[in-house]
Every structure is written in C-alpha cells, then in structure tokens.
Design a protein around this nucleic acid. Structure first.
Lengths: 150, 150
DNA sequence: CAATTCACTTGCAAATAACAAGTGATATAC
DNA sequence: GTATATCACTTGTTATTTGCAAGTGAATTG
C-alpha cells in the first residue's frame, strides 16, 4: 500500500486527498491511467511498450495495486491464453474528469506542451461533452476485447 | 527533478500527464497542495504540523521543488524574520479544479470518506461556483499575510 | 545575553525503484 | 510432436529515495 507512515497508522482516515494519493499518488500510476483511459491500452505488453520505459517489476506491482484498489480488473485473453489484459472499472473511469483537468492545467503551464491547442478550450467550453467523448472511446476499445474471463 | 528515467532523456517531451506527474506526482506533493490550497496553510511550521507527519528533509525538498516549478513563492516574514512562508502562485491555484475533481472522486469511492456529503453534489451542480468559493478563501488567507518580501 | 524558536541540513538505516536475468505457461513453426 | 518463441510475470542485485534523529546557524524572546 502506498502512503503509510508512522503518524499515519490508520490508512488515510477519511481525507479525500490522501485517499487519492494512496490509490494513484505516484508517477507511474499517472502514466498507467493515461494509457488505459486515454490511449486505449489494455494489455500488459502494451503498457510495457510505452515511451516512459517502466520496468517489469514496477509494472506488475502497479497493476496489482490497481486491481486491489478496484481500478482495473485482470483477464486472461480467451483467444491467446498466454496474454493478459486489464479493463478499467467504473472507479477508474470516474477519474477522467480529474485527469482531463490536470491535462488542461499542463497545457496551460508547460511551455513544451505537445497537446493540441484545441484541447483546453474544448474542455473548458464543454467539459461534459469532452468527458463523454473520452468515455465513448473507452467503450469502443472495450467492445473490441475478447469475452471477459477472470 | 521527479520523473526522469533511461528512456526519458528529454524531461517530459510534451505529454501533459507526464508533465503533471513531474510537478506533483507523488504523495507528499498531493498533501502539500491540499494544505496550501484548501487548508490555508502558508508557513513551513504549519506544513510540518499536519497530521501526516512529513519529515523535515522531505518537506524542504518538496517546497524547493515547488518553488523551482513555479507553484509556490518563498518569503521571509517581515514581522518575524526567522519565519518563512510560501504563497501559492497562479499556476498552483489553477490546479484547484483538478484537485477538487479528485476529491469528488474520492468521496464517491472511499468507503471511509470523511468529506461532508454535500461536497460532491455541490461541486457537480456548480463546479465554477465551488471553485470560485475556494479561490476566494485563498485570497482571504493571502490578504492576511505580511507584505511580500523575497 | 542566555535560552528558545525557527527553517532548514546532515548522516545513517530502511524502503523502494531500476536494471538484468530468469521461469514457467502457452503458442507457433516446422 | 517437438523445438523455438512469446508472454506475463519473478527474482536478485544495485542505485536511488525515503524516513528518522540529531544537528546547525540565524533570529527572537525573556
């Protein structure tokens, strides 16, 4: 479990910010959420292949943590049983608004931002519509996955 | 600098999620942002006193990182020159929407959440108004601070 | 002017991350 | 049907980061 110190015997005793920090408060969780929610990645091998170069042990531990915390569910690919994929749950999908909000912030303050200039204005003028668009993309990806199997 | 690995020579080359992870993608940054933006804390001693029990070296390094990345400015208290306070900048204040979004998410999914039940509905029905309320609280706190001095 | 407060710094032990090299299960090629 | 390759991890080792305790020097208080 991320986030437990001496002064913090009870895991996070109700503070929402600390709860969030416990679930995804580290850099690799950020990029995994991006890959799942924004880039349509589902397979272990896809996560491993992303530009940041996460190492296999860290990837495995973060995926396990996300499964434990109900952010992802793990499935064996029924058409290729040596492959494994992870699906976002309602809980992780519900982070989309916050994640998009962070991205708007980054595009505003990162001088090197490579986000399309239309993104921040679009989100600001119609946040619900923008979120709905990403939700629909997630649905499309998940429709293309093999039948779920624990 | 947070977030540099072998495969990541150029700091974050444009990805907004990675930029965000580099600036505040660790658990202590989350709670410091909470303390500054939501709890009106400004002084080194106030941050140190928060429930989580951050240690002095980590606090110093995180504050320095926030100053480097333009999230906070450091000031010597002109009425007590052995005390130091940190003010949020426009950049950190601009994170309020994302931070509040995370908190809404936490209150929805943390079974132990101690957030007032009115918070999430209030934010959902009037996000701009809720954000404006927190902005105003920040302004109030900053008005009470001694004259800025580098 | 002695004791205290304050914002850090330093040193060290423990935890975590990064990297490299397996391992066992499944899948593909012949 | 067997050899090879692919896949999702584990394991082991080293490097980096964290956490804790104990300073340190400047400024303040008594």
């Amino acid at each position: 479990m991320i986030f437990m110190t001496k002064a913090d015997k009870t895991p996070w005793n109700g503070c929402p910010v600390r709860y969030a920090a416990g679930v995804f408060g580290d850099k690799w969780s950020f990029v995994l959420l991006r890959d799942v929610l924004l880039h349509g990645k589902r397979y272990y091998g896809e996560f491993l292949a992303s530009d940041e170069g996460i190492s296999t042990n860290i990837l495995a531990s973060r995926l396990a943590h996300f499964v434990e915390t109900g952010m992802l569910t793990r499935h064996v690919d029924s058409t290729a049983r040596n492959k494994v994929f992870y699906r976002p749950t309602d809980k992780s999908r519900a982070l989309l608004p916050a994640l998009l909000g962070m991205m708007v912030w980054s595009t505003e303050f990162d001088p090197c931002s490579a986000a399309p200039p239309s993104f921040a204005p679009a989100f600001r003028s119609d946040p619900k519509g923008t979120i709905a668009w990403y939700e629909a993309e997630i649905d499309k990806v998940d429709k293309g996955l093999p039948a779920a199997e624990a």
